[in-house]
Every structure is written in C-alpha cells, then in structure tokens.
Design a protein around this nucleic acid. Structure first.
Length: 1275
RNA sequence: GGGCGGUUAGCUCAGUUGGUAGAGCACUCGCUUGACGUGCGAGUGGUCACAAGUUCGAAUCUUGUACCGCCCACCA
C-alpha cells in the first residue's frame, strides 16, 4: 500500500536509487530472466546492444544545469531501449578539463599550499592534480546518479586514466606513421610573461589609446606613381564669407592659393555656391576668392551623394589616381574613397598636407598603429578594386629604415576606406596579415610568394634581420624609436589618435604578441572527407536535422588543426627529442629555425630521420623495453598476428626479419642475429623454429640473456627429409644444456599440446634434458595454451609485461638509506654537523645489531657508501664487516655544518637565539651564521646522486648518512615536499628505501594536446579501456549540447572514422542551452546560476527531468521555469494519488486488457494509440512531444475522464453507507473495471518510466514488489 | 561580412507527411473536498512578424523585407 499523504520525492528518490544500484540494474550484464551475467556471457547473450557514451562532465565540479539536462535526455534513451529488451550500456566518464582544469588546479594549489605549478615541478603537479581530481570524482558521479542517469558507474573512467591515455597517444603515433601530423611554423598568440601560447579563448581584449601613424613607403626606382594633378576640396561650412570664418580657414586658403601657384588644378565639390566663397579684403570689400577649374554641386550635404564623385570625374574626365580629395568631415570621406580617390582629412595639419601633396607621387602611404612591426613587413597590401593604386600592383616598395624591397600585393580583405587603403603586411606578427599572406601565396604560386620575417622574440623584444639599434628593445620602446627615426627622415605624413584593441593574456594580463612558433598540426584533409560523407549519406543522423548544415559548413571549411598547447595538465605529446629543442630566429632571414641538440631540423620527419626524435608512447629506453626482440618462426601465427600486436604495444620492439630460418644453412640467420645487440637486459620472444635458432646462436656466442620466452618451440618429431632433425639438434644436443642455465636467467615456454607435430612428451623431455638448469627451471612457468591459440597471445603478453616490469625494477639503482648509530650528541639531541664525534657504546651495539639483522634477512647489497664523518663511517664499517663488503666514503653526504649552533641542544638554541630558532622552525632554508646553507648541502647531495647515476647505476646500495641528508634525499628521491620531509624525527639506524631511475637522454615534448584531440576519441576510448569495443561500438546515440557540434562532434567523427574505420555513433541528439529564469545566459557574474541540486531538493529529480523534457524540441534553448517545476511536481502528485486510488480499489485483482464495457474499451483503445504515438515520437527523436503527450493523456484523459467515469462502478456503498452495485451485472462490471484499471496503470507506469523513473519505480514496487520496472517491456 | 536559428494567447513555449490554432502559467465564472496540501468543468484571449508566390486550402512549402538571438570571421 502506498503511504498516505502527498508524494515525497525527497525520501523516495534516494531509496529507489539505492534499489537500482544494489540490484545492478544499470549494468548491461543484468538480464531480466537470467539475472546478473558475467561480462563474457553478456557479450554473447544474443540481446541487441545499445550504448551511449556519456559526455564527461568536468571531474572537479558538480554538474551544472546544462550537464544535467543532457543526462535527462540520455537516460530516456537508455531506459527506453532497456525496456525494448536490449543490453544497454551507459558509459560514464569524467573529464580533466584541459586548460580550465589547469587553471582551477593552480588556484587550488596556490590557496592550499601557496605553491605555483613551477614550484611543484611538472611531475609532481601532474600527480597531485590527478589524485585531487580522483578525489572529487565521486561527488560528480553522485550527482549523475541523483538525477537517475542509468549508466554503468562501475565502468566510470577518468579521461586521464592510463588506459585512455594510451589510446589517445596511440592515435597520434598512428597518425605520425600515416604522415598526417607535422610540426610547422605558424603564427601563435604568445604570452611573453607566462611564456606560453594562448588559444583565442584564453585572451581578452582591452581598449587602449593608440596612434594611427601614416608612413610613406618609397616606391622603388622606376615604379613611381602617376602624379597627383587635381586637388578637390569640400570646404562647406568653413569658408563662406571671410567674416564667418570659424577655425583654420586662413591656412587652407593659403594652401589653396599656394597650390594654384604650383599649377595644380583645384576642384570644389560642395553645395556651397561658388559665388559665396569670398574673402573679406583689407578694404572691407568682398572679393571673389577662387577661380575653380572644376566645380560640382554636392546637393546632398551633409550626407554627400555617392554618385557625386562619379559625376564629377565624368564631367571633367579625371583619373581617380590623380586626384587628392580633401574634406572637412571625416564621415564624408567614405563615398569618395569608394570611388578610389585619395582622401585626406581637412583638419590635418596643412604642413603635412602639403608634404603629402608634394611627395605623394613618390610614396605609397600606409597607416599603422604598430610602427615597430614594419621591420618585419614583407609586402604592402591593397584592395584589388582600389583604383588609386591599381598601377602599383606587383611593383616594389622600399621598406624605410631597413632598405628592403617589398612587393605590393592585393587582398579583398583590405578595407579601402580605412587609413589610406594600403596596409603594411607583417605576417609574422598579425593573424590577419598571416592569413592574407597564405591566401596570396595559394593564389599566386611560388614566383610571387610572400614570406614572413619574425622580428619579435619570446620576451617581446625586437630581434631578427633589423638594424642593430632596435635589437633587444621592447615593442613599445621600438615603436617610439621607429616613429622618431621616420619623423627625422620625413616619412611620417600624419598621426591621428586611434582606439585600438589590445590582446591581453587572460591570466597574466600581459600584452599578447603574435609571433611565429613551431607547432604541431594535424593534416585534416584525409580525415574530413569520411566524416562529411557519413553525415551526408545519412549514416550518421543529426537531430535536429538543420544542425546538419552547421556541421557540414564547418567541416567543409576546416583547415589543418593545431593540436599542441603549452600546458601541463593533459596528454603530453608523445614525441621525444635527443637533446634540447630550441626555436631561434635566424638573424639573417627572420625565419624560425628549430634545432635539436644544436642540429637544425626541418620538421619532425626530418628529426626522426636524423635520429634526433622519436614518436612513440613510452619514453625511449627508459623502461628498458628497447631490448625486446621478436623472432618469428617458420609458421604464420606469430608473424601474422601476435608479433604485430606486440609491436603495436611496444613500438620499439624489434621484429627480426629472419628470412633464412628454414634454410638449411644456419649461417644465414646467424648473419641476421649479428646485426642485433642481445645482452643481459634482453627479452627475447621466439616462435617455433626461431626459438631453436636463437638458442643455438646464444649458446655458440655465449651471450647472456635475461629472459627467453619460447613460443611453440616446436619440439617435434623429425621429418623424413632430415632437415627438421637438423633444427631439432640445435637444442637437443645434451652438451648444450649445461650452458643454458648460465646464459639465460629465465626461460618461459608457451606451447599447446596440440601444436603442430608436437607432443607433451617431447616437451617434458626437453625440460628434463637440462639437468644443470633444474633449480632455475623450477621458477619457470609452464603454460598450456588452448589448441586454437585462443589465449596464447594473452599468455605471451602477460609474461612480457611481467618481464618488462622486472627489467625496469632490475635497472633501478636502489638505496637502503640508514642514519648512523648513536653518538653522545644524539643522546642529548644536540646539533651536530661539522663536529665529528665517534659512536658511543650504545651506538656501536646498535650498529652491530643492525648488521646482524641485515645479514639474517638475507638482503644482498652490492656496496656500502657512507658519509666520511666518523659516526657514519664507523657505523658503515661495522655493517660492512658483517656483510663482507667494502665501504666507500664521501664528503658529499656529510651532515650540514650548523655553524654557531653546533653542539647546542634545541632548548639552548631557543634561549640563546630565540629569533633564529623561530625562523628555523618556520623556514627550513634559514641560514645559520657560520653554517652551511641548505642550498649548498642540496647541491652536494645532487652531485652525489649524479655520481651514483654515472658510476653505480643499477646497483643495490646501503647508504649510511645523516639526519639532514636523509631529509634532502626524501625530497629528491621520494618527491616529498619540504614540509613532509621535515615531519617527525629520524632515529639512529632508522632506514628508508629509495630508488633512482636511470636518467634518460630523451626529452619529451613540452606541450600537451588540445583537449579536442583527446575528447575527439571519447566515443571509443572508454570502450577500449573497458574491453567492450567489440560489443558496443559503434554506439547508438551521442547526446550533447548543440554548441559543441562543430568543436566536439566533428572531431569524434573524424578521429573515430580514422582509428576505428567505423562511425562512432548512429545518431547525434543535440539539446538546447538551459537559460536562467530571466531568459539570460547563466553566468556566475550575473548571479543567475541555478544549481540542479537545489531544484532536486525542492521539486525532485523527476520534476526536473520533466522540465527538461516536456514540450522541448531538440536544439532550442529554454529557460529554467519554476512555474513548470511547480506544475510537474503537481503532476507527480497526481500520479501518486491516482495510483493510490487504483491500487486501493484493485487489491487481489489480476490486470486484464479485456472488457465488455464501452468505457473500458475506449480506454484500452486510447492506450494502444497512445503507445504507438509515444513510440513514434521517441523513435523519431521527438522526446518533448512524447513527454507532453504522456503528461496530458495521463492527467486529462485517464484521471479526469476515465477515473471519474469508473468511480460509480467501483463503489459498493453509497454516501449513506447503504450497499449498492450488488447485482451480478454490476459485480461483473466492477470486476472488469478493476482489471482494466490495474492494466492501464501498469501500462502508464511503464510508458512514463523512461521520463520519470523514480516515482514509477516506486509505484511499481506496489504492483510487482519482486521486480524492477526497468526491464518491463511495453514497446 | 559569412553561417544558422527565432518571430504563434498577457508570460514561457509546443505545433513533421500543408486541411477549421495548442499546452502550462496567468485571468474570469461555477462546482468539488473519502485518489489528489487540492482537483474538476466552462470561459476570456491570437488576421500564427510583414509582403509576395505555390496550392482547392499555408503557422506549416518558396522568395523577399524587418526585428531578435547564436556561432564564425573582421576592425591595419
């Protein structure tokens, strides 16, 4: 029985959620009849798979209202398909959030530990970040569960999980092999403070006052422009009558007069009547001012008639390039410019005007706000339609100050009306110029190609092929200098104040410079076509349909994709360099050149060819996987399947191309083996005949090998031709076996009892035939693979991993670090650094006991190293005696000299030097007078570690040293922070285990991938990680917000089609943006953010789901509506009460869809059509309509009509309590009504379940307490 | 400037094979409280932005205009 009172979502929903999770109903392994299957059973259980990979929310932040909206839609699909009888996987994950994540983490570490990421170092920052995010993930997951999203949370995975990382990086290495990645020089936003490239989104714009400077670029030699012959003035409102003069007229008048003297033709374009242009002479007479050669009335003043200029030219047959136009109103200049007239503003100082008129013939004037970048100009661009400069196209200009010739080129992007209509082109330092350069080069080919010259370096200082005096200046300083120098040379025509938008780094607030830099790119040409086709031909459908256009438009205009980002938090680019990579500006050419270890390289393929770079997932050699050799045999299996798989996983493994294996001449493959350097670290996997060949080779050449995995070694009976016998002999000759135990540390044999021509008996013989290796062989495992090679590769791979891990372990240098035994100073806890006391009696005993314990524990050390101070050396010697080892002592690990504190106890120090004591407590680096600085000690310790790396690599060392040194070692080797390392005491003879990794000479690329490169692989990476790719890929639906269709969905399409050769999903469902109640976009700054958890608390998850779902269409945004939430809460209550009514009237009744009653029949018909409608809507991705239909049908038909009608048939008593409906007819009608009622309720609950799962499940518990509603079928 | 949407009742929005305009909220009137912290019934309210076209018939298809929104590009 349902409890009385209104529906309480707050209590019910968490209970139901627990019921689902405990029941494992969210797992695809759950089978409605067979219960929970094993994963393997599930994979082959015959049910149709259905999968949605959930877009991963940020791992560090509770999902916002928009994320939750996505869950609602995804969950409808998941639950609907589950009810259809499919095995359903919702694959959840959490995102590391790229740059956003890094910003958040930096903030957290700063607030909590006052540490920048640089303080922490890259490794530590990454690790700390990783564990921080892992801690936050459950919180995010709880929110996903709370809304009811029925994904398989056991399979939740973090985007930086090593398994995902492997897939993501693997895609890159594959692309590298397919020649689809390249490193190219490209313009980037460079933050000179943060020393990083910035994406546009990480920048802000700030308006600043600047100056637009007009600079004359001389026209080279014979290319001079035609002369300006005509000067046209519009001087309306300036000079009408001399006594009405307003401002600067006298100067203009003087100018005009002057120009007339110089035989320029003067025109007037004005609505001022010519006769009104008069001058007031000294006698007070009005005199006619000018005789104009040309005159045109501009009747449309103050807005001039655009045609006026055309008419003007026509009337007097003038050429636009020979006209200079001067106006008093800057607005009016536009139409004149459109006609291609050179324009000048009247208010410009007449000196400049004059100069321009005089010199304009020899120069092309450009306008710029960034004069300093002219040093990097490589062209001047004009609009191809611009009449004024038409004759200059293709001609050369001389770049002032640098004396370099640059061409005049064209681009339609140039605005003829801005400045002079001629733009200086600085491709290295302006995105736009860079693009214009590229477009020009594409259209005009090699001959007319324009390059870039980089003149700003990464500190935002001037560099490159520029006059010495500018080098090293900041851009601002240089702008000043240039401006001065140009002024001196008379090349500045005019200056006008100009507001400019400066790009600012969002975080550093530094002015962002655009400079050339080497970046990673993905060539999308090969990627994009399949992704376009799949959508065009409908293989992938997008809902709403019109978004297809957005997608295609984006895809078709896609250019190469820059994928590197200067961050630490993300997938570090798996490219390794042999030495330092430097980007330098060539001082002769201004080109960016890249060097590795001082050697210039031309792109990554060149670097790899030169052996200076490698593109592979793991650090080359660091894990000693380089000594992995794969030796194929005669038969196909290993060559064809296994070895390529291994090679894929360990790209540096060598597959030996031994062609001569079945050649009777043994020497053929010996020759092949000779090319390789087998040694003690080697792991050899050999197959079949290859096994015997390599064994022979190792034996003959006495080569020691760490591990040999013999795969189907083929100890078969000799064939009649005698050739096989010969091979068999290679390993069956008894005299060889003695040597095997010395040469090969581990032998593993993988074989099956059904291997061709091989019998178990042969094999056991083989093992027995190595008498000397017996003890060793006991450790080896024998694997009995199935006959069809079924798990053979798994066995080999497992073994391999084991061996490789062991190899890594073996190659580490290991320390057991021990503090020296007790001295008298220790006893009283006095400072003792440079003082050199001996052990006291207790100390000697301590050391002896320690030595004995070591000996008994059977730990083996290669050597003992101690500090050269007596207490340490003495301790070491006592131990050495017991272990029969030599002691090497070094001053590098002496205790710190504590200066004036030597010999004093802490209490003494506190009394004598209270200030110093306090400081030491606070700050471990505090200097001590006359003492040694911590930095110096740290340097000593580092030098010591270097020495170990160089001379004692791979050894196991017992290290006897001091308190302070141990703390430093903990920081250096265990990665402890200073605080951590200072915690607690270190007792005499207390030991610590530490290890040193071998130093690699390979340096990994510093950048990480663009987040879209990794998230673009999200459709399959988690499935690979969970080993479900074969079962659930391609997935069915990708559900996300429409705004990342282009950024995300398109990338998933491209990368999935590339790596998986199959579409990633069949449908893309795009939901709209959830806006705030006021219709505005939600943002923290507006303070209108609505938190899902608050809504859920107040209205319940079901109500919130309905708010997202009911009546909304795909792609459209909609506001949070409290009215609706209120309404849906009432709807839930309605369902609750109607169910209560039905259930209370149908106890012990069986549901039935048969009835003779007219109303019942109508209800049953209604239910049928409703069901069909709902199915149609959902199948056509009209979730909103399906939900709306259900809502109104349940309420306004079932409750309002049917329930009211059925009541009289149910009652057995009237209002007064008298029995009614007692006749057999009425009884039958009542019974039918009850059965149909219950049937209808069941059907409604099932249909409603995908939309409002909690309440329907709760009610279902009353209907069928033993079963969940989740797997009830109704479709 | 390019691309894509939107413009329907006072408000928020539905309306897919073109056939007499819908929901929720709000408003008016009435009824009801033994499923319903309420519910039910009835009602008010829209030349579906504007214009032209196709059609027997257009909110729905075509073209154009206006306004609003989003994305992308641009501002030397």
């Amino acid at each position: 029985m349902l409890p009385k009172g209104p529906y309480n979502s707050g209590n019910t929903e968490p209970e139901i959620l627990k019921y689902w999770l405990d029941g494992k109903f969210f797992k695809p392994e759950y089978h409605p009849e067979r219960g929970l299957l094993s994963t393997e059973e599930m994979k082959t259980d015959g049910r149709e798979p259905f999968c949605i990979v959930n877009p991963p929310p940020n791992a560090y932040m509770r999902p916002h209202i928009g994320n939750v909206s996505g869950y609602a839609y995804q969950d409808v699909f998941l639950r609907y398909n589950r009810m259809k009888g499919k095995k359903v996987l919702g694959q959840p994950g959490k995102d590391h959030a790229g740059i956003q994540g890094e910003v958040v983490l930096e903030k957290i570490f700063w607030e909590n530990k006052k540490k920048t990421k640089q303080d922490m170092g890259r490794d530590k920052f990454y690790k700390a970040s990783y564990s921080h995010f892992l801690k936050l993930m459950p919180m995010v997951m709880a929110d996903e569960q709370r809304i009811g999203l029925s994904s398989d949370y056991d399979r939740n995975i973090f985007t930086l999980d090593p398994k995902i990382v492997k897939t993501v990086l693997g895609t890159f290495t594959k692309m590298f092999e397919d020649k689809m990645v390249y490193k190219g020089v490209r313009i980037v936003n460079w933050d000179p403070i943060a020393k990083t490239t910035l994406a546009d989104i990480d920048t802000e714009r700030e308006e600043r006052d600047g100056e637009l400077v007009y600079i004359n670029y001389p026209i080279a030699g014979e290319n001079k422009k035609p002369k300006i012959k005509t000067i046209v003035f519009d001087i309306y409102g300036v000079v009408v009558k001399a006594d009405e003069q307003k401002t600067i007229d006298q100067e203009i008048i003087a100018l005009i007069k002057d120009l007339k003297h110089q035989n320029y033709k003067i025109g007037l374009l004005s609505n001022t009547k010519e006769e009104n242009l008069v001058e007031h002479d000294s006698d007070g007479q009005y005199l006619k001012l000018f005789d104009f050669q040309y005159f045109a009335a501009d009747t449309n003043n103050p807005k001039p008639d655009p045609k006026a200029y055309e008419k003007f030219e026509e009337k007097y047959s003038l050429k636009p390039e020979e006209i200079l136009f001067i106006d008093d109103n800057i607005e009016n200049l536009s139409p004149a410019k459109k006609r291609g007239w050179i324009t000048f503003h009247y208010q410009d100082n007449t000196e400049n005007l004059k100069k321009f008129i005089e010199t304009g013939r020899e120069y092309l004037t450009v306008a710029t706000t960034r004069a300093e970048t002219m040093l990097g100009d490589t062209a001047v661009v004009i609009n191809p339609k611009d009449e004024r400069y038409k004759d200059l196209i293709g001609k050369k200009l001389i770049l002032p100050l640098v004396d370099r010739e640059i061409p005049v080129i064209t681009s339609p992007h140039v605005d003829m009306e801005f400045g002079t209509g001629a733009v200086k082109l600085t491709p290295a330092h302006s995105m736009d110029d860079y693009k214009m350069m590229n477009e020009w080069n594409v259209e005009n080919g090699e001959e007319k190609k324009v390059g870039y010259i980089n003149v700003i370096d990464k500190d935002a200082k001037m560099t490159g092929p520029i006059p010495e005096k500018y080098k090293g200046l900041t851009t601002e300083e240089c702008r000043e200098e240039i401006s001065k120098d140009l002024e001196k040379q008379g090349l500045i025509v005019k200056r006008e104040p100009h507001k400019m938008n400066v790009m600012i780094g969002e975080r550093s607030k530094a002015v962002v410079e655009q400079i050339m830099s080497s970046q990673w790119f993905i060539d999308v040409e090969k990627l994009k076509q399949p992704a376009i086709d799949a959508v065009k031909n409908g293989e992938v459908q997008i809902h709403p349909d019109y978004m297809k256009k957005k997608y295609l438009h984006w895809m078709e205009n896609l250019h190469d994709w820059p994928v590197s980002r200067s961050l630490w938090w993300g997938y570090r680019i798996p490219v390794w360099y042999k030495g330092e990579v430097k980007e330098e500006v060539n001082q002769e050419t201004g080109q960016i050149i890249e060097t590795i270890n001082g050697v210039q390289v031309d792109g990554i393929y060149d670097a790899v060819a030169k052996g200076l770079a490698k593109v592979q997932i793991d650090e080359p050699g660091s894990e000693n996987r380089k000594n992995l050799f794969l030796i194929p045999g005669k038969h196909g299996y290993a060559n064809r399947k296994l070895f390529p798989e291994i090679k894929n996983e360990y790209p540096h493994a060598a597959i030996l191309d031994v062609k001569g294996l079945d050649d009777p001449e043994y020497k053929n493959y010996v020759d092949e083996f000779k090319k390789y350097d087998f040694d003690e670290a080697s792991i050899i996997v050999a197959h079949s005949l290859g096994t015997r060949a390599i064994l022979r080779y190792l034996l003959d050449n006495k080569i020691k090998v760490n591990s040999l995995i013999m795969l189907a070694p083929g100890c078969r009976k000799p064939r009649s031709n005698g050739r096989d016998q010969k091979y068999l002999d290679l390993i069956t000759n008894a005299h060889d076996y003695d040597q095997l135990k010395d040469l090969i540390k581990n032998i593993d044999i993988v074989y099956s009892d059904n291997d061709e021509l091989m019998t178990l008996k042969n094999f056991e013989d083989f093992v027995k035939l190595i008498p000397g290796a017996k003890a060793h062989l006991e450790k080896n495992k024998m694997h009995y693979a199935s006959s069809d090679y079924g798990n053979r590769s798994e066995i080999v791979k497992g073994l391999l991993k084991e061996k490789l891990d062991a190899n890594i372990e073996n190659n580490l240098t290991k320390f057991t670090v021990v503090r020296h035994a007790q001295t008298d100073h220790n006893k009283i806890k006095a400072f003792c650094g440079s003082l050199d006391p001996k052990l006291n009696r207790t100390g000697q005993v301590q050391a002896e006991m320690f030595a004995r314990t070591l000996k008994e524990s059977n730990e083996k050390y290669d050597m003992i190293i101690s500090s050269d101070l007596k207490r340490a050396k003495e301790t070491a010697e006592i131990i050495a005696k017991e272990l029969k080892l030599e002691v090497i002592s070094t001053e590098l690990i002496r205790e710190r000299d504590f200066g004036i504190l030597e010999g004093k106890t802490w209490q003494q120090v506190e009394t004598e030097y209270p200030k110093l004591a306090k400081k030491i407590e606070e700050q471990y680096q505090e200097e001590i007078p006359e003492g040694e600085s911590i930095n110096k000690v740290e340097d000593r310790v580092r030098a010591f570690l270097d020495m170990i790396r160089n001379d004692y690599s791979g050894k196991k060392i017992l290290l006897v040293t001091h308190f302070g040194i141990i703390r430093i070692l903990k920081r250096e080797l265990l990665g402890e922070t200073p605080e951590e390392s200072r915690k607690g005491q270190i007792d005499n003879l207390q030991r610590f285990e530490m290890r040193i990794k071998p130093e690699s000479d390979w340096i990994q690329d510093l950048d990480v991938f663009d987040t879209w490169f990794s998230s673009g692989q999200w459709a399959y990476a988690p499935l690979i990680a969970n080993d479900l790719i074969d079962t659930f890929y391609p997935t069915d639906i990708m559900e996300t917000m429409h705004d990342i269709l282009e950024l995300w969905v398109s990338r998933m399409m491209m990368l999935s089609l590339y790596t998986q050769k199959k579409i990633p999903f069949k449908h893309v469902y795009l939901h709209g943006m959830v806006k705030a109640a006021d219709g505005q976009k939600m943002s923290k700054s507006k303070g209108n953010v609505v938190l899902p958890e608050e809504i859920i608390e107040k209205y319940g998850a079901d109500s919130l789901r309905l708010m997202y779902l009911v009546g909304n269409k795909a792609g459209a945004s909609y506001p949070v509506s409290y009215e609706k939430l209120e309404g849906y809460k009432r709807f839930l209550n309605k369902i609750w009460n109607a169910s209560k009514f039905v259930l209370s009237n149908t106890e012990n009744i069986k549901p039935s869809d048969k009835s003779s009653n007219k109303e019942d029949k109508k209800l049953l018909r209604e239910l049928m059509t409703l069901k069909q409608t709902i199915i149609r809507h959902i199948d056509n991705y009209r979730i909103g309509m399906a939900a709306e239909e259900l809502y109104s049908h349940f309420w306004h038909y079932f409750c309002d009509v049917f329930l009211e009608e059925v009541k009289p048939r149910l009652y057995t008593k009237d209002r007064e309590g008298n029995p009614i409906n007692q006749g057999p007819k009425e009884q039958k009608s009542r019974k039918e009504a009850q059965s149909v009622l219950l049937y209808a309720l069941r059907e409604y609950m099932k249909m409603l379940n995908p939309f409002i799962p909690f309440i329907t499940e709760r009610i279902w518990q009353e209907i069928e307490p033993e079963k969940t509603i989740m797997y009830e079928s109704w479709v």
